[in-house]
Design a protein around this nucleic acid. Structure first.
Lengths: 179, 179
DNA sequence: GTGCCATCTTGTCAATGACAAGTTAGGGTG
DNA sequence: CACCCTAACTTGTCATTGACAAGATGGCAC
C-alpha cells in the first residue's frame, strides 16, 4: 500500500493542512510539505484540488460547515451561540484563520458559497429568536462582537489579564451587548 | 541618480508594500516585486529589513502608530473613537491586515511592542472616559465590536444590505453596545 | 480479459527568500 | 584636501516552492 490509489488522500490532505496551518498560519502553507507529511508525491495534492487556492477553498468550505454544526449544537440561547462561535474559532483555529481571508481562496466557488450561507443562516436565526424582530443591525452587532473577540484572542493582541479561558471571557464580553 | 544611495529606500519600500498588500494581501507579498517597483536590485530590501518578517515588523509598527494617531484625532466621544477605528481599518487596509497577524512578523520587536502599547492606551483611555470606571470588560467589549465589524467588512463576508458606507454602518452597530 | 479512467508519479520551469561577496559614494578625520 | 570607512546597494547563487506536462498504475465496469 501507500503506492498508487491512496484512496483517502483528499481527506488526509485536508486534515494535514489543518495541522500545518495551526502551526504556522496559512501564509506558510506548502503543498509539497503537505504531500511529504502524507507520504505522497509532490504533485498529488494538485490532482485533488487543482492548486493551492483550490485546497484552501475546500478547507474554508469544510470550515463553514463545521461552524454551522457548532452553532446548531449550542442550542437556542443566543449567549451560548456566541460563546460557541468563539469556541469554534479557538478549537478550529486553522479553519477560522482561512475562512475570513477570501483572498486566499476562490470566494465564488458554489460549494463554498452554500456552506457560508448555511452558517450565516444559523447565526441569523439565533439572533431573530432572541430579539423577536428581523435581525439586521442586531445580528450585525452580535456577529461583530463575537467575531472581533475571537479574532483578537487568536491574534494574541489581548492583555494577559483577560485570562486563559476564551469562552469564559467571551461570555462576559457578550453580556455587555445585551444589558 | 537612481543608482547607489537611493536615500529614501526604506520609506519607499514601506509605502510600496502598502500598495502591494492592499492589492493582493500580505501572503502574496514579494520582496523582489517590491524591489522592482522601487527600481532597485532584488536584494536591496534585505539590507533595510533583514528579511520579509523584518519588513512586515516595520510595517506593522507603522500601522500601530497610524492607528494611535487616528484614534486620538477622533476626539473624546467613544462612539467617534469606535468609528475612527473602523475608518482606520478601511483607509489603511494593508496595515490593518498585517497588524493583527503576528505570525507574519516579529511580535516581540521592541519598537513594535511600544507602538502597539501606544494605540492600546488611546483606546483604553477612551473607554475609561466614557464609563467612568476602570475599563477591562467594557474596553474589551468595545474593542471586540469595532474590531469584529472592521474585520468582517474587510473580509467581504457582510451581506450587501449593510450598504457601502462602513463608517455609517459601524456607527449603528456600535450604538447597540451602549443602549 | 480487456479497456477505461481516476489516481498518483516523475520531470521540469520560472519565481521566490535568503545569503555571500563585491561595488559605490558620501561624510568624517587627519 | 586626501584618505578611508562604512552604510547603502549590487551581482551571483542556492534550496524551496507552485504550476504544469507527460507518463505509470491499478481497480472496476462490461
Amino acid at each position: 500500500m501507500a503506492s498508487y490509489h491512496h484512496g483517502d488522500l483528499r481527506r488526509v490532505l485536508l486534515s494535514t493542512a489543518a495541522e500545518a496551518i495551526a502551526e504556522s498560519g496559512p501564509a506558510a502553507l506548502s503543498l509539497r510539505e503537505l504531500a511529504r507529511r502524507a507520504g505522497v508525491s509532490h504533485a498529488a495534492p494538485a490532482h485533488h484540488f487543482g492548486d493551492k487556492a483550490g485546497l484552501l477553498t475546500a478547507f474554508a468550505t469544510q470550515g463553514f460547515d463545521l461552524l454551522a454544526d457548532a452553532l446548531r449544537q449550542a442550542g437556542d440561547d443566543l449567549l451560548d451561540t456566541g460563546v460557541a462561535y468563539v469556541g469554534f474559532a479557538v478549537r478550529h483555529r486553522a479553519h477560522f484563520d482561512v475562512m475570513f481571508r477570501p483572498e486566499l481562496y476562490r470566494a465564488d466557488d458554489p460549494e463554498l458559497v452554500a456552506a457560508r450561507a448555511r452558517s450565516g443562516d444559523v447565526l441569523r436565526e439565533g439572533v431573530a429568536r432572541h430579539t423577536g424582530r428581523e435581525p439586521d443591525a442586531d445580528a450585525l452587532a452580535a456577529w461583530s462582537i463575537v467575531h472581533g473577540f475571537a479574532t483578537l484572542w487568536l491574534s494574541g493582541a489581548l492583555p494577559p489579564r483577560v485570562g486563559d479561558d476564551p469562552e469564559a471571557a467571551a461570555r462576559t464580553v457578550i453580556r455587555r451587548l445585551f444589558d
